[in-house]
């Protein structure tokens, strides 16, 4: 077996089959995938959720995870945020010629561990290899299907006046973990990416309340974007208290250093929920018992004023508009 991916690995040749049969399929195999037909075949009934996402994170290995774990978590979380129980995932790889096979092995092992942790199966996949320089080492796309329990209708457009806004933990950890590895910016961060599958956390929340109106994982654009989306989609105002927002000192320190606002930094293992006021305490306490919700906190509420906007109450008692980010989040010197 070569130690690097060659163009031939993507050409449907013997090498391609070896790559799939010896490296890619074994760790994640299951009865559906093992049939190796052109598409996965399975039966499902009830209301379904279906989603897809692509992953181009650079670098592909970062403190707290890698592109493989990220690709499973992203799709598992997107399904969970619509109240679905994630079941089946697809996994498509676009590999740059020259990627070490040992690195691919580590990434597939990470896909396996994360899928197992989330209790989902990779049932179909594809592999393509492109010339050196045409992709940045590895791109991954995953799509996923899940089943939504009857009567459940969770959406960014369902937040209602009086709902409490609950955040499941500290913000900005993934974005800063990746940025700390970037060329020209290296710094040592005492916190790692929060990349994690949240389907079990959501299931535990749904078990104690059926008044969770909105759920979303604040990935790119951070907490500020998700809150702005809720306010706009639901046509409500949202008021947030700055000093209630959990944030790790390391993320705060790195953001001070680079002149960034942590409210706009990506998360990959956090969720924001709009919950009816009477259920807020119940939901909060069950979240805190889950390993991914230990720092969960109520950070604000849905209001009737300033519809479509998010207002942040600052520590010193004044308030300001919290808007969507515009363009790439760049470190600044002034």
């Amino acid at each position: 077996m070569n130690d690097r991916i060659l163009l031939a690995h993507g050409s449907g040749s013997k090498l391609s089959h070896d790559l799939i049969e010896k490296i890619l399929a074994p760790p994640i195999n299951n009865p559906i995938l093992s049939r190796m037909d052109d598409s996965a075949v399975f039966e499902l009934s009830g209301k379904l959720a279906f989603t897809t996402d692509s992953y181009v994170v650079n670098p592909i290995f970062f403190p707290g995870g890698n592109i493989g774990r990220l690709a499973v978590c992203g799709t598992v979380n997107d399904l969970s945020m619509s109240g679905a129980q994630p079941l089946y995932l697809s996994l498509a790889l676009i590999i740059e010629e020259g990627l070490e096979i040992e690195e691919l092995r580590k990434i597939i092992e990470s896909v396996r561990q994360t899928a197992e942790e989330a209790g989902v199966q990779i049932v179909t996949g594809d592999t393509k290899v492109v010339n050196r320089g045409k992709a940045d080492r590895l791109f991954i796309n995953t799509a996923g299907i899940g089943v939504i329990a009857t009567g459940l209708d969770i959406s960014g457009s369902m937040a209602r006046e009086g709902d409490k806004i609950i955040l499941s933990g500290g913000i900005g950890e993934h974005g800063m973990a990746v940025m700390s590895q970037r060329e020209g910016l290296q710094f040592r961060l005492p916190v790692v990416s929060d990349c994690a599958p949240l389907n079990k956390l959501v299931a535990e929340m749904l078990a104690v309340s059926n008044n969770i109106h909105s759920l979303r994982d604040p990935t790119r654009g951070g907490l500020a974007s998700t809150l702005s989306e809720f306010a706009r989609q639901s046509g409500v105002g949202i008021s947030i208290e700055e000093d209630k927002i959990p944030i790790h000192d390391g993320v705060r320190g790195a953001c001070e250093l680079l002149g960034l606002d942590p409210l706009y930094i990506a998360n990959e293992g956090k969720l924001v929920a709009a919950v009816a006021p009477d259920d807020a305490e119940k939901v909060l306490s069950v979240m805190r018992k889950n390993m991914y919700g230990g720092q969960a906190a109520t950070i604000g509420e849905v209001t009737g004023e300033r519809k479509g906007r998010v207002v942040l109450k600052t520590r010193i008692g004044s308030s300001r508009i919290l808007d969507m980010p515009t363009g790439e989040i760049l470190p600044r010197i002034c």
């Binding site: 290296q186 040592r188 390391g250 993320v251 320190g253 010197i333 002034c334």
Partner: peptide, 27 residues
């Protein structure tokens, strides 16, 4: 116009120093 943040010096080696802010480290 010029962002500067207070950091603590952890160690010094010639004209380079290891500093820390909130656990974040850099030379």
């Amino acid at each position: 116009m010029c962002l500067a943040v207070p950091v603590k010096i952890i160690s010094i080696e010639g004209e380079q120093a290891e500093v820390d802010i909130g656990g974040v480290g850099r030379k």
